[in-house]
Design a binder for these strands. Structure first.
Lengths: 134, 134
DNA sequence: CGATTGGTCAACCGATCGGTTGAATTACCT
DNA sequence: AGGTAATTCAACCGATCGGTTGACCAATCG
């Protein structure tokens, strides 16, 4: 009972966990430091002026988000940065960055056409309502 | 007093705001829908079964994070998705994704060397403690 | 003008968060 | 076996979060 088999969260909740985990500056700093190599809880806790328990909790959050994994080394539990998750984030972000770019391009095209002819009276970009109707 | 000039948050806090804003699935959904075009608060609130005030708050959070901007159109306040912020996130993520990759490459090199000679007795990756000493 | 539409402000509520302290657990070391 | 180092568990605390309801602007329409 001590180790539940982790019911494998669906990707949307996974994203929530990852973003939420990285919303805390201390947690981001821990991630940054782990890029230099694996580290134990005590090593990670040393630079901050909070209790070791607090850092342990932070690591737990990162672990639940899939950002770090841990192995066993005697009584130590070294933390290891998982790279895979960054791909997940990059994919999510890239999708919307690209969409925004496309929107810019479309707007540019409209402006160009407006410039070529005289002024059509609808310069406002389409709302989602209008988009649904198409 | 009603409109403070926004003291321009430093990049680290900015990252906290962005990640925190995107940690909520409703907010991510709003962002997704805004890629199809600008939309008003009421339009954005319509699909969800929460109050308009709640959605208004969500939009406020996205705005504070710099993810959306708003203009005026009569009594309407159309929301517009800001693309710039995604670059900030991508830059942050890419940095650590790359670092993780480098770490893999270094490990591969070590393993190769171990394979060429007989076995050097230190297969464990360096800890941050050790990294500091170098 | 008064009524209505679009949106926000204010106060409140239960849940979660980041932090604490104290006790328990686990594995090593004489 | 006893001691101690590394980590986690448990209970608690104040602050913030996501949500509600009700009142309050602000701008348009009759």
């Amino acid at each position: 009972m001590t180790s539940a088999p982790e019911p494998a969260p669906e990707p949307d909740e996974r994203l929530s966990l990852v973003f939420s985990a990285l919303a805390d500056p201390t947690r981001r700093d821990i991630v940054a430091r782990l890029t230099a190599g694996d580290a134990t809880v005590n090593e990670l806790a040393e630079p901050y002026d909070v209790s070791v328990q607090a850092v342990s909790k932070h690591i737990r959050v990162l672990e639940d988000a899939g950002l770090v994994s841990r192995s066993r080394d005697a009584q130590r539990r070294p933390c290891h940065l998982e790279a895979e998750v960054f791909d997940l984030m990059t994919k999510w972000i890239e999708r919307y960055r690209r969409a925004a770019e496309d929107r810019y391009r479309r707007l540019d095209a409209v402006l160009e056409r407006m410039d070529a002819q005289d002024g059509p009276p609808v310069p406002t970009p389409r709302t989602t309502k209008e988009a649904e109707a198409s």
